[in-house]
Amino acid sequence: MKYDDKLVPILEIDTEDNMFRLSLEPDPNSLIAAIQSVGLINPPVLRQKEDLRYRIVCGFRRISACRHLGWHEIDVRLVVGDVSELDLFELAILDNRSHRAISVVEQARGIQKLEPYIPSENRLETLASLLGFPVNKKVFQKIRALGRLPEPVLAEVLNNTLSFEAAVHLCPFSPKEALCFLDLFKGLKLSQNKQIEIITLVQEIAMREDLWIKKVLQSSDIKSVLERPDLNRNEKGSLLRAYLKRRRFPALAKTQERIVKALKALRLNEHVHIIPPPYFEGGPYTLRMTFKNQDDFSKRLKTLDAIAKNPDLKKVLEPY
């Protein structure tokens, strides 16, 4: 590739042209001080367009920082001669990768932009090598799917508010719906699995009840949980999940509530536990008993005897 080193007026650089941009809207703050102190060490790479303005290939943040500093002109490396768009994309990616690992969001955007240029036979291998992800079809599909998400959602993947896997689960939704989920997650502190659980529950409730996702997320029950000042973000997350599960599985939830009541009525203590079979589908109940000595053991037997005579035991054993 051939370059001309040149000084170009910043106003002639088309900063709205994002063809080769992989990162989200650049934050120039970290660079401003450095450039102010030592100047622009590594000039951005540009390509002249047909309208004679310049398209940025590498150096979006550097140019943004220079604009913030009030510069009118900037030293650049101008790509000249016959160079394909694919070569310029490769240059943009390699420039990024030369000084840092590129993020999953950049990989997603890279896939989106480069896919049309690469033949399908070796697309996975080429993109994996260029963008630095494993040669694995499932991983590729997940990263590629992220490209469909709106920028604010992607930004929160980078901020770790939203996990990568949860973001992948948001891909089938419309941008508006994905943003609704994002608003919810910003107010909570949830692990990856819990984020995925909430996405799944909300989506399934919407399907069951013929509602829009937004309608489910803005229901008064959810709002009242989120607006409770006495709860921290973890507690709100737990309450929200419990509410969604009750709404998604109403019959199961009712049975579980009945069982909890019936177990309370048995007045079990911390040494004796009765555990119903999973989902009450069948199979044995489990009795767990702890004791330290023979005296303890005799006491537990008396407790068990009392439980056996308690009419509420039937309610536990016949839950529906």
Binding site: M207, L252, T255, E281
Partner: peptide, 24 residues
């Protein structure tokens, strides 16, 4: 299709089934 959004629970054979009272 909405058929997978019923109240399914994992059965003893690891297949998803309607919660037993609903089946009954």
């Amino acid at each position: 299709s909405k058929i997978i959004y019923g109240e399914f629970i994992p059965g003893l054979d690891n297949k998803m089934r309607y919660f037993k009272p609903l089946r009954i």
